[in-house]
């Protein structure tokens, strides 16, 4: 009994050490890769590359020409969903999911064409996908509330500040 306990703890320690080592080695590369991927999406939404020297991720109210770019995060079904939203004159000009942990094959339609509908209609008008209600609703609600906040920020009769 004691021997089992000691040996299983020993194996766990070996595994933990290995994981920590690899993580330490790869973490900076992984972060750089993810940021590069997010910037690529941002360039796509803004219609072309822009200088990123003074901008940090996540984006908040970044103005590129007439477009406003934001990172919007919301809890989904499997974890946090992170998207980049481009606003053109108060409506959604483009939105892309940059990170998510939704169920593969079921909740990953948010990587695809379903997202394009938000460019044509109000978030809550887009059809929810059956079998992935939580995922769809999470995105619709997050976009809805993002739109509302953004509108309130730019509206002339809104509260000051």
């Amino acid at each position: 009994m004691i021997k089992s306990l000691v040996s299983i703890t020993g194996v766990a320690l070996v595994c933990a050490a290995l994981l920590a080592g690899v993580r330490y080695q790869t973490a900076p590369h992984i972060r750089a890769n993810r940021e590069a991927a997010t910037w690529a999406v941002a360039f796509q939404l803004a219609g072309g590359p822009f200088p990123t020297n003074n901008v940090t991720l996540p984006l908040a109210n970044l103005r590129i020409g007439g477009t406003r770019l934001d990172t919007v995060s919301t809890p989904g079904y499997g974890g946090s969903i992170e998207m980049l939203v481009a606003l053109d004159r108060g409506s959604i000009g483009g939105v892309k999911v940059t990170r998510h942990e939704e169920t593969p094959g079921l909740g990953d339609f948010i990587e695809g064409e379903w997202m394009n509908q938000f460019e044509q209609m109000q978030p809550m008008e887009v059809d929810t996908i059956s079998g992935a209600t939580i995922t769809s609703l999470a995105i619709k609600r997050a976009l809805q509330s993002h739109l509302r906040t953004a509108l309130a920020e730019t509206a002339p009769e809104g509260p000051p500040g």
Binding site: I8, V11, A12, V14, C15, L18, L19, V22, R23, Q25, T26, A27, H29, I30, N33, A36, A37
Partner: peptide, 19 residues
């Protein structure tokens, strides 16, 4: 535990070097 460790390492290495 050992298999899971190596799998996780493989995922991290892939994400770091062959994105």
């Amino acid at each position: 535990m050992v298999i899971a460790t190596f799998t996780t390492c493989a995922v991290m290495l892939l994400e770091a070097y062959t994105f």
